[in-house]
Design a binder for these strands. Structure first.
Lengths: 361, 361
DNA sequence: CGTAAACTTGAAACCGCTTTGAAAGATGAA
DNA sequence: TTCATCTTTCAAAGCGGTTTCAAGTTTACG
């Protein structure tokens, strides 16, 4: 049933019905009640396609899910983020449009969404350093919010980010305080803004203690379980292996755990691990004492915040740009402990000679 | 720029332009080329909102992502499925609309999508036994495809499913052939159709060898890492623990691996594990010899197939219902081995007495 | 009671595209 | 050349809402 028929049936004009249904004040309470009740009874729901054309609003937020070229992989945090954002959209009557595109087609996809007018705003996922999407969206005049930030981009824009630098310097300090001196970093893909900030935090902390970073202890890659495994094996298999490792996500941490197990190295005693925990719903790092010592920040909450900010912007909230910086506090779990007195794990002879610098520092 | 202005500028009527752009045959090649070229040059793109109203087609497929009541969890296979389906949508010019709703609001959400006319069809995720959504969508007259199947639902409908029963009976047989007699099953949530079929397959195989199932060895739950951990501990901590475990997904398998490690039980020698592997992009069970012995079926491929079937249906493909049953073949990995001669893992005395029945069978 | 102000309601234009039905132009047979 | 046929193009009527502007009703108050 369409508006014309419905309004005719209940003896009112389309105008009045539309107003009643959309909560305009120019309609008396009595009439509104009558309309609402009749709509319910006769099963009338306005056609969104028509409403969208008439209002010029798409009532839809776009998310673009790029498939990484390398592994055609979907970011494992994506679904939790979407869950958070989606909740907010539902509450406010917005729909969520998801476009799955290959990495290289991403810019085109944004342009397309904008010109076709199917979204009122978009969320930028996984920003890189100096991310070109920000400029593009500004040009297109499409409201947006970034989940993360983009270094070296000038001007204000909406974003929600974790204080990655602080989190990782904090985690590194924690390990240093435990006596660790060789600390590995299993980080996200090179060029990703968050990975850079985490690296910076890690370097900050090392530098503050006068420790020079070792390229062999720093690795970047797509955060799969296998990546965590391979990198851990590789690091521990070196001449001068780390006694502690920082891992950017719980997914590669699963691989790291497997690697330690395979090598017969004790997690938390022989090698310590600190992860960044996005609080994924199917990977809760919990318990009386969590499995992993972790800097935690719920990516789902980030999704909620992004949605709120973007909707505010779209609905023409006052000022302009807004942003949120979430702090990720460190929770101590079972995966960390004092640095073994430089007992070398794979090559016991060699380590004896290494003990001295360790105790001296 | 809108159609009116664009067509005016290039000296043609809106009708002709629309036809040229939409590939109708009533327009000469020369004109079409001219239109396409001008559109490119002047940057004209038709407004989808208007096109959708005019054609009555939403050019959008709906997916509803329910948040489980228990843990407000997102199904970990969801993002890979979406990636597969989304690829197909992009290719055919369809959009994907994602609604995040609480479990209990799901029916309402389908109804809403249908009456508002924002989608041309929907995908049903995670069907339960006798799933009410199928009936609902039939009533609403909204085309749909089920990822999975629903037992005890009459009549034909579109679906794409894995042969879960066969996969799990096959996996169970494999373990039986290795001499295992006490085989645990860490399954999906009770009531889920796939979980039921897997249970049936498992029971079939046991029964065929005259082994009675033990309720203590069968568990159902939401497939989180922690669920896998807890259940494994619980099973192995019993008087009569299993020597092998079947696990419905790689996510709880991570937890099972952790449990085995914590208990100091060797995976593949002391306890064998077979998983069902959905081939998630961030959890590749690969290598020369895969980590886990597994029945594998790509959920991403299932997403592609679902999309294809649904789009065919929507575009009024001939006959009617279509379905695909995917076989999941068993790949032997490192996580399985011959049953230990009933060496009890936690209670060595007790097991000695158990050895006999084992060798007799 | 009369009139201004405040409420309610409605007619019609509009959103930007698709599509029907008709006309104009091109082609070809008679 | 004429008329029939085919091809190409167009004017106008939708699609189903929203919103402007005007008109009809009440209410308020002198």
């Amino acid at each position: 049933m369409n508006l014309k028929e419905f309004s005719h049936r209940i003896g009112l004009s389309p105008t009045t019905v539309s107003r009643a249904l959309n909560g305009y004040p120019e309609v008396s309470e009595r009439t509104r009640r009558k309309v609402l009740e009749s709509a319910e009874r006769l099963g009338y729901t306005p056609n969104s396609r028509a409403a969208r054309l008439a209002t010029g609003r798409a009532m839809t937020i776009g998310h673009i899910l790029p498939l990484s070229k390398e592994h055609e992989m979907v970011n494992p945090i994506f679904s939790d983020f979407i869950a958070g954002a989606g909740e907010q959209y539902s509450k406010t009557g917005y729909d969520l449009s998801l476009s799955v595109v290959r990495d290289e087609d991403e810019a085109e996809a944004y342009r397309d969404l904008a010109t076709r007018g199917v979204v009122d705003g978009v969320v930028i996922h996984g920003p890189k350093i100096e991310d070109p999407r920000i400029r593009l969206l500004r040009e297109l005049g499409l409201p947006f919010v970034v989940h993360g930030r983009s270094s070296r981009v000038h001007g204000e824009y909406n974003w929600v980010d974790v204080n990655n630098r602080r989190a990782f310097s904090r985690a590194t300090e924690f390990l240093l305080d435990l006596g660790h001196r060789r600390i590995g970093l299993i980080n996200g893909l090179h060029g990703m803004d968050f990975a850079t900030r985490r690296l910076n935090g890690y370097c900050d902390a090392l530098e503050a203690r006068g420790i020079t970073q070792d390229p062999e202890l720093i690795s970047s890659g797509e955060m799969t379980e296998n990546y965590g495994f391979d990198t851990t094996i590789q690091m521990l298999d070196s001449d001068n292996p780390p006694t502690a490792i920082l891992i950017s996500s719980i997914v590669p941490a699963m691989g790291a755990r497997r690697a330690l197990h395979d090598l017969g190295i004790g997690l938390g005693d022989e090698v310590s691990v600190v992860i960044h925990d996005d609080d994924l719903s199917y990977f809760r790092n919990e318990g009386d004492v969590p499995i992993f010592t972790a800097t935690r920040s719920s990516v789902r909450e980030a999704g909620r915040l992004c949605a709120d900010i973007l909707l505010d912007t779209i609905r023409g909230a006052e000022d302009g740009r807004r942003h949120v910086l979430l702090e990720a506090d460190l929770t101590v779990g079972q995966s960390t402990g004092p640095a073994p007195a430089m007992r070398h794990l794979l090559d016991r002879d060699r380590t004896e000679t290494l003990r001295r610098p360790q105790t001296l520092t």
